[in-house]
Design a protein around this nucleic acid. Structure first.
Lengths: 438, 438
DNA sequence: ACAGTTTCCCGTAAATGC
DNA sequence: TGCATTTACGGGAAACTG
């Protein structure tokens, strides 16, 4: 039995509580003071080591990069205990679970000036698991490392942290782990970025971005002659990502159904909206996201032929608060404009190109909510019955993930390394999508 | 200089952060793990004791009652430090401030069965401050106690805790402190309870309850032939208080202006609404609180003469979520009913008895928000400009209070005791109201 | 199983640090 | 002073516990 020195890690981010789905996801975002769980699994099936391997988690162990960056933060685990690997009955693997883990910032921090420090969401850390044991006169130090971890202290940093995670992933498919990636972050090609963005929409709304949508995004995001996207424009100066993230959140919370159905064109410029609608029937409308509201908002534009010339109107966008109170299908159903002499009419008839709105949305009308709202006689309205429980996307970016980590220990084996690295990407949404949507 | 053994305390609850208002309030509700501040002041002006008095806070010191109740919880302070009394420049008093205090439940809890335990919101505790010093060969133990403290662990317990605080206050004006009051809580007279309730409305909405409103509440609350109100009916079985508290919260968050103006009749039965409205002009309406919604909701009823017979309509009540999005004056302004042939009219014309709605509410209309909402052309709506910042009531029940406590140390002095006890009640809202509103 | 109680943690606001 | 980062804590929901 020859043993090894080089170790491998694969990190799995899992749905929160009991759904121990095994869909692999990207690196980790951990929030200080918030509980997470790590499961460590010995890759080689060696039940004879039961109770012999004592594993200890260490934060940023031997991270040279940390010393190179001034003001790099230090963290510790709130509990600092070891666990002994035990046999996991179904598969017979050696595993253990660190539950109730959480991070706290530790004092010994070399405070660098603001200039020289990396923003916290660009600081990459790792959690390593170390074990030491004797066997046949041999003493071995085994180590396994997590994928990079972004440590945040407040949920308002999660958006920026997620941008880092995406950028990191696109750049380090098979390269060695580079914790200083954001000291001088390389640009992405539009091809790379569009792919990640599309995954995000799949993850939140069960549908990727189509060519037209991607084209609008490309025009917004790419301003480099060579078609590259620079980190600073993506997540710092222009901060396109914060805008996209607001839309993803809006979809996830209030528009999963309509987005999955493809009823939301979403990314269309005003000009193009004008062009598309004016040659359509009176009352044709489309749904697009607000380009100015940073926290995600959706609006509808419709064409009006009643004055001879086609005229395209647009409504002030609806944000999350409003959609929480009234789901979009209901808003569309009840939308009405005051005409001459106090008459009211609903100008929304066909969803672009020519689907009657009821054909598109009828299944989401909620009978009790759809009666004229706030009418006399205490009409009971049960609001949001179908929007309060949208099918939750499996493990979406915006959830703070539990950390469920298979620490895979094996002999020196570059092939396996390669295999697992690919595994990480192949099981990502892209793969799933291409096999589902053609 | 003769000294003393009997000590006195007066507890002041103060607005949260910097507003060190000195409006005295009732006993205390403290939430575990939430910071509070206690200021301790030596009543006698004895600057020569500067730096000689070392004060230590102790939770439930020598509380015999605690031992009598099975499962009585124990708490400790998260920090356990002493402070030395120093001279406070403006007044020359000896004071000190315990900042960053918080409570945590301690282990040594005698767990009683559910049956025998007091509900946590009926468990009364005290915080005592002890100091020991030598003077002229005399060694003295000085102690001062807070008014009773209700310790909760979650904000959802604050409503029930506040009920306890009110009940306690009405019953222990000048009696000795009884921490077991809720083991067998005495009833209140309607006279007593109505007074406290009225204060609550003053505190949240700057206006007390009038005779008509109190009469409706009396009919709802008193079911005892002798006009007594029993604790079980007030805060347990029927739990009238949770309903009233929801309304108080609604007022505080969304209706302070209208309530202060007296525009909200609020407590009116449906029957009486019918009687009042049907003899009024077409379009007369009144505002009343929902009697069924537990979390506070308001509705309007109006009389319609357009079909010959007066008919009184009512609208489905608006709750906090809805009022957050659209302030009530705006809702009333925009309310419209679909009539025959698609015409819409606003049935609300006169606020009962005969004030035109614009006369009553015009000052609360927000110009940009009042344009027809969600019309075409991206009409910018600035929602809630006048409702997001209602004048906050000074130190309202629903805020988790900081604890700012004058620990008043004096010689044996029953008169002062009496005086301070009265002070506690005389500076309560009642007094203020009667001197303001006549 | 259940009800009372506590913990968990997002999201906003405020405080803090540099 | 301004901006980046952390803390505070209400509120809803889940977890705990007898």
């Amino acid at each position: 039995l020859s043993l090894f020195t080089k170790l491998l890690t694969n990190a799995l981010v899992v749905e929160k509580q009991p759904v121990m789905s095994s869909l692999p996801q990207r690196p980790l975002i951990l929030k200080t003071r918030v509980r997470f769980t790590v499961r460590v699994r010995f890759l080689a099936n060696l039940p004879e080591f039961k109770y012999l391997l004592k594993v200890k988690p260490v934060f940023d162990k031997d991270v040279e990069e940390a010393k190179a960056v001034k003001g790099f933060r230090h963290f510790d685990f709130n509990r600092d205990e070891c666990k002994v690997l035990d046999v996991d009955s179904p598969r017979g693997d050696l595993v253990t679970e660190f539950g109730h883990m959480s991070l706290k910032e530790s004092e010994g921090r070399a405070k660098g000036s603001h200039e020289t420090r990396l923003p916290v969401t660009e600081e990459l850390h790792v959690i390593k698991f170390v074990t030491q044991f004797q066997y046949a006169g041999l003493e071995l130090n085994i180590e396994a490392s997590s994928l990079p971890v972004v440590v945040i202290s407040s949920t308002n940093q999660a958006v920026a942290a997620w941008a880092s995670v995406m950028w990191y992933n696109m750049l380090s498919t098979s390269e060695p782990r580079d914790l200083l990636l954001f000291v001088d972050p390389p640009p992405l090609t539009w091809q790379q970025l569009s792919q990640v963005l599309s995954w995000q929409f799949w993850s939140c709304g069960k549908r990727e971005l189509d060519e037209d949508q991607l084209s609008v995004l490309r025009d917004k995001i790419v301003d480099d002659p060579e078609g590259l996207v620079h980190w600073n424009n993506f997540s710092k100066n222009e901060n396109i990502w914060i805008w996209i993230d607001g839309i993803l959140d809006l979809i996830k919370k209030h528009l999963v159904d309509l987005w999955r159905d493809g009823s939301i064109m979403g990314f269309v410029t005003r000009d193009r909206t004008q062009v598309l609608l004016q040659e359509k029937h009176h009352g044709t409308f489309l749904l697009r996201f607000s380009e100015s509201r940073k926290h995600g908002a959706i609006t509808f534009s419709w064409v009006d032929h009643s004055n001879g010339e086609p005229f395209v109107h647009a409504v002030d966008p609806y944000n999350k608060d409003e959609l929480l109170l009234t789901p979009l299908p209901e808003i569309i159903y009840h939308y009405s404009l005051r005409g001459r002499r106090g008459t009211h009419t609903n100008p929304l008839i066909y969803l672009y190109p020519d689907i009657h709105k009821d054909a598109a949305f009828e299944r989401y009308y909620n009978s009790s909510a759809m009666s004229t709202p706030k009418m006399s006689g205490y009409v009971p309205r049960t609001k949001g019955d179908f929007s309060d429980n949208p099918t939750p996307p499996p493990s979406p970016p915006r959830d703070m993930p539990m950390m469920d980590m298979d620490v895979d220990v094996t002999e020196e084996d570059d092939e396996l390394f390669q295999e697992l690295s690919e595994f990480f990407f192949c099981n990502s949404p892209t793969f799933d999508i291409s096999s589902r949507n053609g």
